[in-house]
Write a protein that binds this DNA or RNA. Structure first.
Lengths: 339, 339
DNA sequence: ATGAAAGCGCTAACAT
DNA sequence: ATGTTAGCGCTTTCAT
């Protein structure tokens, strides 16, 4: 590595002190009434030498890194990739940088990443926590790290969160299935203890109960394609096959599709499918999948806003925010009343 | 923020010097023959106080950050999201961290991110460059930053790269279309000056020429859904409609699908479609899209390997690596010979 | 309007 | 087997 230009080099070349150089380069020139001429000279030299400040030195000194961390379960999942994309660009607006970590839905990796990020002196963190444990999160929050959970969260914890109203979303989807005549519904859930999943199950069961339907099942245990695939295979083996499947995520829905194709079960002729999460591809699937869309962009924007109100204005009140989902009726649910 | 524990705190509590503490905590205990008892004591106290090393201080001192940067055009594109995911986990194996930047395919943002990352003293960078300029990249490489381009690259530049063999991939896809009887083919390209695009056009045109076909068009100018949509709309207006469309990316293909649906053109009955890039969703589209799959995982693994051979072993030879693509025949191309 | 100097937390060369 | 100390590049307090 060639010698990296630092403020000493600039100061020498300019015949000024490093203090003055630092002030000019940090936009504090006016505050210290540094002459126009000096300012220009310093700026010119800095440019000429292609000076780039050393963040480590700066951050070591200030204790601030202008960096926040985002931890998500998997970048390969389009739902989380979109979250990463939106957060990244929102955070940039504050002139901060986002460190993205992929926990692979493994609590140990999550913990490792958290401590790696912590040692980088991040100024805040947004996380889709992957476990049921939250002590480690509360701890870092108590240690002074601004923290916001998105999508998944912990009820009764002091950690702010922004999430879809999963209960209402699942209720609406279930109600819609019932309105279309479905009386035997198989529900494939994700990670059982995750709060969105719990809320979705609640919404689903409440709808079943409200409409007096008791022929339903809730199976599965992972937000994965494989889980959707296996559970669908099993559902198709039941003596009384469900007329509709409710998949709790886009990944699960992919697995359902795979199983249905394999078994030669036509969608929506032989069975109906409704899923959580929307994304562009769902429109091109045959048939386009009817889904409960989550307001990802809003979730992220609000989370970033909350995070920065803690970082910049020291607002430490815990916020619990639920956003409305939207039922997008496409073509994968059949009205079977007439039958 | 509460007082953060540092090695001075630990040294005091242990009644030892900070040097010894530093050595133990850095796994150099044996090298300096520090007694087991001392080691245990220090480890215990560090644990008890929940010590997390300050990376800034460490990196300022060592000049190394154990951090590499990855810049991609868009996290929302599943192709790049997968790249980010793989690179992230490969880099972690070296006990390094990846900073992910999203350039939004804007050369100015790319430059900004590069300098932000540079000032974070990254030890290396992997980039899918978004522009046709490469001076700024050569410059940082000359300044000593290990650098590898993936997917997109610059011919004749001294920068190492790993990419699919886009020429062969496009040639194979085109040949396949011809073998299926197609004689009038519309090709929708991405960013014109990007090397993969240039290679794909070459492969396509070479196949056309090799098989004596001159009824083809190459249109479009962006790897976006919108570009695919608009160009498909236009293609369908031609007096002699093409019998097949070759989309140069999965995003373009999505746009094609949208336009075809809107126009009520059946796939593959009325028109055939072949695309670059594979991903799980393509299997569930109706019909599943025949595509040229790129070996994303291999590309990323090799890129990371090259990068670390430069970082760790100072191997500065420039490497140009092309990997084979795979033609995946699914269901979107119709054999029209019999007609 | 500008400068000197301390110090952020850590590592490593140089003791002992 | 352990300790002393310089210094990484920067910001900021205190001087002038």
């Amino acid at each position: 590595m060639q010698h990296k230009i630092n403020i000493v080099d600039i100061a020498q070349k300019a015949g000024l002190s490093i203090t003055t150089v630092s002030r000019v380069l940090n936009g504090q020139a006016d505050k210290y009434r540094i002459s126009k001429k000096t300012q220009e000279k310093i700026q010119f030299i800095a440019n000429e030498l292609n000076y780039v400040p050393n963040e480590f030195a700066r951050n070591l000194r200030t204790g601030k890194s202008k960096t926040i961390a985002l931890i998500i379960p998997s970048l390969k999942n389009p739902f989380f990739a979109e979250i990463a994309s939106v957060i990244n660009s929102e955070v940039r607006k504050y002139d901060y940088i986002t460190l993205i970590g992929d926990s692979d839905d493994d609590i140990e990796i999550e913990k490792t990443e958290i401590s790696q990020f912590t040692s980088k002196n991040i100024d805040g963190m947004i996380i889709v926590p992957c476990g049921k444990e939250w002590e480690h999160l509360v701890k870092i929050q108590q240690d002074g790290l601004p923290l916001v959970c998105i999508d998944r969260y912990f009820e009764g914890s002091p950690i702010s969160f922004v999430s879809s109203n999963n209960y209402e979303g699942a209720y609406a989807a279930s109600k819609y299935l019932i309105e279309q005549g479905h009386r035997s519904i198989g529900c494939i859930q994700g990670i059982k203890y995750s709060t969105p999943n719990i809320q979705r199950v609640k919404g689903f069961e409440q709808a079943m109960s409200d409409f007096g339907i008791d022929s339903y099942t809730v199976t599965g245990d992972d937000f994965s394609e494989q889980n959707g695939y296996l559970e669908t295979k099993l559902l198709l083996q039941q003596k009384e096959k469900p007329t509709a499947i409710f998949a709790f995520s886009n990944t699960i829905a992919m697995g359902c599709l795979k199983a249905l194709r394999e078994e030669g079960v036509d969608l929506p002729e032989n069975i109906s499918l409704i899923t959580f999460d929307d994304n562009p591809y769902l429109n091109y699937i045959d048939p386009p999948l009817t889904c409960v869309a989550q307001p990802i962009e809003d979730i992220c924007k609000i989370a970033v806003k909350i995070l920065f109100s803690t970082i910049l204005e020291n607002d430490k009140t815990s916020k619990n925010i639920f956003l409305k989902t939207e039922l997008k009726i496409k073509g994968s649910v059949k009205n079977i009343f007439q039958q």
